[in-house]
Design a protein around this nucleic acid. Structure first.
Lengths: 204, 204
DNA sequence: CCTACCGATCGGTAGG
DNA sequence: CCTACCGATCGGTAGG
C-alpha cells in the first residue's frame, strides 16, 4: 500500500536537513569559514548547484548552519539544565549539562559555539555581532542563576555574580578545547572538578 | 657616501620578515587557514609570486608563521615570567605575563596560539600534532611550577599540580576570547581576579 | 534536483 | 623580486 502523498516537498525538506547536518558537523571540526558548497556537495554525492539551490547564497548556508547548531545546543544543554530549580542548582546543572554535552560528543569537533567564538572573535561584521549576542546570552544565563543564588543566601552576599559566571565558564571552555585536541573525553573531568571547586568556594 | 655593500640579500631578508609579520597579524585575526599568498601579496603591494618565492609552498609559509609567533610568545610571555623564582612566584608570573600580553595587544586578534588551538583541535595532520606539542609544553610549564611549589610547601600537599595548571590556564584562555570578542581589554581583569582567587585557595 | 557555464581566486610553475 | 601562465576550485547564474 504505497502512499500517494506528494514526495517532492518532503524529500526536499529532508535533503535540506541532511545538508545542514553535514554542514554543522563539518563546521564544528574545521570552522564555519571552511564550509564550501562544493565540498558539501561532494560529501553528500549531489551536485554543487543542487546544494546551492537550497540556500541561494553561502551567507544563508552559514546562517542556517548556525541556527541549526543553536537548536542542537538548546536541546542538548539548555533544556536539560532548566529542569533544575533556579539558583545554585540550575547553575550547577548548566555546567554539568555542558560538560555532559562535551562527553557525549554531540558535535564531532567539540562544541560548535566554542569553535565559532574563537574563529570570529577578532573579525568584524554581522557574524561577529551574532556571536557576541550568543555569548552574552550564555554568560547572562550563568550570571542570572548566580544572582538568584546570592539573593537566596545560597551564595555569600559578597560573591560577584558576573565574576562567578566567568570563573565557571572558563573551565567549561578549556575542557572543550583540550579534550578535543587530545581526543580524550576524560579531560572533561578536569572541568568538572574545577566547577566543583569554584562552587565549593562560594557557597555559604 | 652611499654604501656599496650588497643590498640584495639584506632586502630579501627584510621582506621575508615583513611578510611573516603581516602573516602573523592576519592569522591571529582570521586563522592560519585563512592565510593566502595572494592576499598577503595584495596587502604588502608585491606580486603573488614575489611572496611565493620566499616560502616555495603554502605549508612552509604556515610553518614559518607559527614559528615566528612562537618567538613572539617566548619574548612577550615566557622570558618575562622566568625572571621570577621557581615555584609559586613563577606560577603567578606566568599567568600575569600572559594576561599582560593580552592587555598589550601583542597580536591584533588576541593570542595567536589560543586561536590556533581552537582552529586545529579537531582536525588531523601534522599541524594538529604541532599544536598538541605546544599546548603540552605550556601546560607542562604551569604544572612544573605548581609541583615545585607543592614540594616546597608553598602549596598544600593535597594539591593536584595538573588540576591546578588546568584551573589557572582556563581563565587565561577565556579572558583572551572574551576580551577579543567584546573589543574590551578590561575583561582581562576578570582573568586576573580568577587567577588570584584560585591561587588563594591553594596556598598554605 | 541536474548540466553547463561565468569571472575570480587559489597554490604553484616557467623563465627571467 | 617580476610577468605570464597552469589546472582546480570558489560562489553564483541560466535554463531546465
Amino acid at each position: 500500500m504505497p502512499t500517494d502523498v506528494p514526495r517532492r516537498r518532503s524529500d526536499g525538506e529532508q535533503t535540506h536537513t541532511v545538508i545542514l547536518d553535514a554542514s554543522m558537523r563539518l563546521a564544528s571540526i574545521e570552522g564555519i569559514g571552511s564550509l564550501t558548497i562544493g565540498r558539501l556537495a561532494r560529501e553528500l554525492g549531489i551536485s554543487k548547484s543542487g546544494v546551492f539551490a537550497h540556500f541561494r547564497s553561502k551567507q544563508r548556508l552559514q546562517h542556517e548552519t548556525i541556527e541549526a547548531a543553536a537548536a542542537v545546543f538548546e536541546r542538548e544543554v539548555l533544556t536539560p539544565a532548566v529542569s533544575a530549580p533556579e539558583g545554585i542548582a540550575r547553575l550547577e546543572a548548566l555546567c554539568e549539562a555542558y560538560l555532559s554535552y562535551l562527553e557525549r560528543g554531540v558535535f564531532p569537533g567539540g562544541c560548535f559555539f566554542a569553535h565559532l567564538l574563537a574563529e570570529l572573535d577578532a573579525v568584524d561584521g554581522p557574524m561577529h555581532d551574532a556571536v557576541v549576542v550568543g555569548q552574552h546570552r550564555w554568560v547572562g544565563l550563568l550570571e542570572q542563576q548566580a544572582t538568584v543564588a546570592i539573593e537566596r543566601g545560597d551564595l555569600g552576599p559578597t560573591v560577584d555574580a558576573a565574576q562567578l559566571a566567568f570563573e565557571l565558564y572558563a573551565p567549561l571552555e578549556l575542557a572543550n578545547y583540550l579534550a578535543t585536541l587530545d581526543r580524550d573525553p576524560s579531560i572533561v573531568e578536569r572541568g568538572r572538578r574545577a566547577v566543583r571547586m569554584t562552587i565549593a568556594r562560594v557557597v555559604t
